[in-house]
Amino acid sequence: MTNTVPALAIQGVTKTYFDGTETLSILRGIDLTVNAGEMLAIIGASGSGKSTLLHIMGLLDQPTTGSIKVDGQEASSLSENQRSRLRNEKLGFVYQFHHLLPEFSALDNVAMPLIMRRVSYAEARAKAEVVLGKVGLAQRVLHRPGELSGGERQRVALARALVANPVLVLADEPTGNLDTETAENMFTLLKEVNCEFNTAFIIVTHDPKLAALADRQLVMEKGQLR
């Protein structure tokens, strides 16, 4: 049965800061619905509000006003602990820089989100191995990040984002630190896992090729999505 609950629904989201002399409006009334399995690209110039929006969508920051629902659950009124639990259970993250733990193998890096959810070490590693296979790293599971190429490290980061079966993965410039050929391979992989896992993706990118892969593209301009 297809999930009809949106992966993410935000309404009337604003974010303002007071810098000591004036109030700055970073986000100006954002409305956005991302359906289960949808891939959305958000593009925009530096300073347009993309990073602020991404942090709010990822429950890493609170909006000044507005509603945020993740997989149908209203997040705006939750406590910090409840938001953290919802984030861990429902969301995955991929960053421009992979943020892998250098002392751990690819397998243990990917297993980490499950271990944090108190899944047994053996079960977490078993699931991590399956997902690493899905992203083409079945032969590299015991390698540490320093023994992997840049593209392989980003694949590990993607596997880590997917291992807990999130409803939504937020990807911040996921190919921004890769050469052209590796970035193109990453584009293809993102689309493949989007289809196979039916996981929604929101990709913030400056790359028009990556944006063109998405089901939908929106432009962030002066704190609003167009």
Rank of each mutant, 00 (worst) to 15 (best):
V70L: 14
L178V: 05
L8P: 02
T21Y: 01
Q154W: 01
K222A: 14
A164Y: 07
A128W: 01
N194P: 02
V119E: 06
D108I: 06
E38W: 06
V34L: 14
S105C: 10
A211L: 09
G223Q: 02
A7C: 06
L59Y: 08
L158I: 10
F18P: 00
G72Y: 11
H206V: 04
L137P: 02
Q139L: 07
S77K: 15
I43R: 06
M220D: 11
R28P: 02
Q139R: 08
I42Q: 12
G136M: 04
E22M: 09
N3C: 08
G92M: 01
E192N: 13
R83I: 05
T33V: 15
T188N: 14
L54R: 11
K127P: 00
V119C: 01
V94A: 01
Q82D: 14
S76H: 13
D71I: 03
Q62H: 14
L218R: 09
P208I: 12
A183M: 05
V119H: 07
V119R: 10
G176H: 03
L210W: 10
L59V: 08
M39Y: 02
L101F: 09
D215R: 04
K69P: 00
Q62M: 14
R125E: 09
S48P: 04
H206P: 01
Y121H: 11
M116Q: 12
G151V: 06
D172S: 08
D31W: 03
L158Y: 01
G44K: 07
A128N: 01
E192L: 13
Q139V: 01
M39T: 11
V119D: 02
F197R: 03
L107R: 08
V34S: 11
V110C: 09
S51K: 05
T23E: 15
V94N: 05
K209I: 03
E192C: 03
P166K: 07
I42K: 05
V94R: 08
V141S: 04
A214S: 10
A159W: 05
T14D: 13
L148P: 13
Q217C: 08
L189I: 11
T205G: 05
I202L: 04
